[in-house]
């Protein structure tokens, strides 16, 4: 029998990093399916524009940066949570606690309930299920949490990969049949603005945003986001992890774009502008009736894979970044894993019943979630690019970035405040898009962190890109 400490360490690694034994195949499956859920299939197709494929094409670059820049850094620093890297690189642990808390709150109050809520709603409408959205969401949550709690990251990654093969295959069949239904002609009867890849200023992705803001959103999402990045940390070696992430990047650029935009365009040609009903309507039109059970399984699996993956990341953040540091260092990880998982599951189902009653709350919360992306990325950029930074200066940058973005989202971008347009339009800058604002927030957050570090804490930060030594000895 293993001594207690050794047993604890191996429990940790099994639950949070699948014993460090995931092959590239399962890393690729887990990274791909953690991201792909019904909100993407329904929401992106609901835009009914080819342009939306840029989110996936740009994701290819985000994944390559994860593979070749971030994965070696996380492995070198022996990280289980990505926030451990921040503690190692800054002079102080406060930034790790703050960012970990933000991820944890975002997962608990927004991400977990949103995944089962949107999945349950789609299943209820499409398959005419008589049960309430909350009941369907509770069943999905029970199964999803079951995988994360009983099997840890290994079960999550294996589920993601096996389900992923079925989901991607069936989604490609939908694309093939949809194209066949319109005689492989997407261009006639579809306006040019829905087929162009060069986004105009009033489109969801203006072309200029691809060259800066979009890139940083992708870096945040794939490389400094515990929900995704944890899956790339579970391989035995850096090389195996890189192989898995590159495979996920190839899937992202070759397979995902058609499945999230083509059914939407076909829906426009067949039914006109039908918003978020597009995917369901195309599926009902092109898939034969006898496949509806199979399609329901695909949708349920897409929800389960994302829910269980985010659940596993949530349990990891609480256990490693909070419970073991502040409550009980030698806690029994298996018991804690069960308790935290069950609490998170109950909380997410309870929130679904609230969200189902007032849909605008979840939209507001999702906007709030978006507020955190660039401020969090700023803390990573300052940590990786500079030396001699105080953790409290990074927290100041984060708070400032959050405030600037909130001011934009809830005041400057509210058309009612400025006669039907954004504030930027009133000063002759109508092209300023929220992706541009994200870039502005990122640059401001880094600058505020550097200035606070210099003026308040008297530290001279030094640019030191690529050097992996810790910042100061005082951490």
């Amino acid at each position: 029998m293993l001594p207690r400490a050794a047993s604890n360490a191996s429990d940790d690694k099994e639950i949070f990093l699948a014993g460090g034994g995931l092959s590239w195949f399962f890393v690729a499956g887990a990274v791909t399916l953690t991201n792909l859920s019904t909100d993407q299939l329904v929401g992106m197709n609901g835009n009914q524009m080819l342009l939306l494929a840029w989110w996936e094409l740009a994701g290819f670059i985000g994944l390559l940066l994860l593979a070749f820049v971030f994965v070696p850094i996380y492995y070198k620093n022996n990280c289980t949570t990505i926030t451990q890297l921040l503690e190692k690189r800054y002079d102080g642990a406060s930034i790790r606690t703050v960012i970990s808390a933000l991820f944890l709150l975002g997962n608990l109050f927004i991400y977990l309930p949103a995944v089962i809520y949107s999945g349950a709603l789609f299943m209820q409408i499409l398959f005419g299920i008589e049960a309430s959205v909350t009941t369907i969401a509770a069943v999905l949550a029970l199964f999803g949490a079951g995988f994360a709690i009983l099997g840890g990251l290994r079960a999550v990654a294996v589920l993601d990969t096996y389900a992923g093969i079925g989901i991607l295959a069936l989604a490609l069949v939908v694309v093939f049949l949809a194209m066949q239904a319109i005689g492989w002609d997407m261009t006639t009867w579809v306006p040019e603005e829905r087929l162009t890849m060069i986004g105009s200023l009033d489109s969801p992705i203006p072309f200029h945003t691809l060259f800066a803001g979009m890139l940083f959103i992708q870096i945040f999402y794939w490389s400094t986001n515990q929900n995704i990045t944890q899956k790339a940390l579970a391989a035995p070696t850096v090389k195996e992890a890189q192989k898995g992430v590159v495979a996920a990047a190839i899937i992202r650029v070759l397979i995902v774009p058609p499945i999230v935009v083509i059914p939407g365009i076909v829906a426009f040609k067949l039914f006109g502008d039908v918003d978020d009903r597009a995917y369901g309507m195309v599926v009902a039109e092109v898939l034969p009736d006898w496949t509806s059970g199979m399609f329901a399984a695909m949708i349920a699996a897409a929800v389960l894979t994302t829910y269980s993956a985010v659940m596993n990341a949530t349990i990891t953040l609480w256990s490693v970044d909070f419970h073991r540091r502040f409550i009980k260092p030698d806690v029994d990880m298996r018991k804690l894993n069960r308790t935290v998982g069950i609490i998170a599951m109950i909380a997410s189902v309870a929130l679904v019943s609230i969200y189902a009653g007032a849909e605008s709350i979840i939209n507001l919360l999702q906007e709030l979630n978006g507020l955190l992306f660039m401020p969090i990325l700023s803390a990573f950029i300052a940590a990786l690019l500079f030396r001699n930074m105080d953790a409290r200066a990074a927290v100041a940058g984060l708070v400032c970035g959050f405030s600037i973005y909130a001011f934009h989202t809830f005041y400057l971008y509210v058309p009612e405040n400025f006669g039907g347009v954004s504030w930027y339009a009133t000063i002759g800058l109508p092209w300023v898009h929220y992706i541009d604002v994200m870039l502005f927030v990122l640059v401001s957050s880094v600058l505020v962190a550097l200035l606070t570090n210099l003026i308040v804490f008297g530290n001279h930060a030094r640019l030191a890109f690529g050097k992996c030594a810790p910042q100061l000895n005082g951490a």
């Binding site: 099994e14 699948a18 014993g19 034994g21 398959f127 005419g128 299920i129 199964f143 995988f147 099997g151 290994r154 079960a155 294996v158 589920l159 096996y162 389900a163 079925g166 006898w290 509806s292 059970g293 199979m294 329901a296 399984a297 349920a300 699996a301």
Partner: peptide
């Protein structure tokens, strides 16, 4: 959904669960 489709749905989900647990148990046994 017709009963046969519910059965297909349940069968596929069960198969997915069984395949996943087989792999997890095999990896733990190594």
């Amino acid at each position: 959904m017709a009963h046969i489709q519910v059965a297909v749905f349940a069968g596929l989900m069960l198969a997915l669960t069984a395949l996943t647990w087989r792999k997890v148990v095999a990896a733990r046994g190594q």
